[in-house]
């Protein structure tokens, strides 16, 4: 069984937000909900200051705080490491949301359901279609699912996640600078494992002790 993971090379990243916006399209996310974001800041003092860019998403941690916090089992981890929320089981207590040190979860309430991309002008065809073919449940928590639909359907078709476009997360394939690589962390020969090894890629805030599946080359 693979353990799916991602390597983000922030040296390549130009903070164009393609990952975040492609993700929103892939999952018909409502306004102001991001399963992928780009954190932009700077370090150091003038003139030696440096811009810092970190695209962030759910880390699909091995020791996931959200899984530990969920009282109903709605948030669970698959054998391949992907952490998912079963909307049908979610009671909406948001314990997972509060527990996530990376703050990668969103509570989908009526306000988010009602929100429009063009406020006060009604929902677009895009939003209406999303509600029909990729519905969310009010009163539950949502987050990045590592494009599990693409992975599962891709595997069914005999495709390789991380290599074949249709089996790879949307944020990875849409990155215009190839800053994201997806693959099996447990396979030492995979591109992700190699990149982690060669570039000493690091997890974000390893001190949280959650063992994220997303690594960064910086």
């Amino acid at each position: 069984m693979p353990r799916w993971g991602m390597v983000v090379d922030v040296k390549r990243c130009i903070a164009c937000w393609s990952c975040a916006i492609s993700c929103k399209e892939e999952h018909f996310l409502p306004p102001k909900v991001f399963w992928n974001r780009v954190l932009i800041s700077e370090r150091g003092k003038y003139p030696a200051s440096r811009k810092v860019i970190y695209p962030v998403l759910c880390n699909h941690c091995s020791e996931a705080s959200c899984v530990e916090a969920c009282p109903t089992g709605a948030t669970y981890q698959r054998e391949d490491g992907i952490v998912l929320v079963d909307y049908d089981k979610c009671v909406g207590c948001r314990a997972c949301l509060v527990a996530c040190p990376y703050q990668q979860r969103t509570y989908y309430d009526q306000e988010k359901k009602d929100a429009e991309y063009f406020p006060g002008q009604g929902k677009t065809q895009f939003e209406l279609l999303g509600e029909e073919i990729y519905p969310f449940q009010v009163g539950t928590v949502m987050k990045c699912n590592f494009c599990v639909e693409r992975i599962d359907e891709g595997l069914e078709k005999g495709l390789a996640p991380g290599q074949d476009r249709d089996a790879t997360p949307a944020c990875v394939i849409s990155c215009p600078v190839g800053a994201r690589v997806f693959g099996d962390l447990d396979d030492p020969g995979s591109e992700v494992s190699q990149l982690i090894k060669v570039h000493s890629a690091k997890q974000l805030r390893p001190e949280f002790d959650t063992d994220p599946a997303v690594y960064y080359i910086d």
Partner: peptide, 13 residues
């Protein structure tokens, strides 16, 4: 354009 299926945020939007 960008790497493989890559497109910038403006384009994706």
């Amino acid at each position: 354009g960008g790497t493989n299926s890559g497109v910038c945020g403006k384009g994706a939007a």
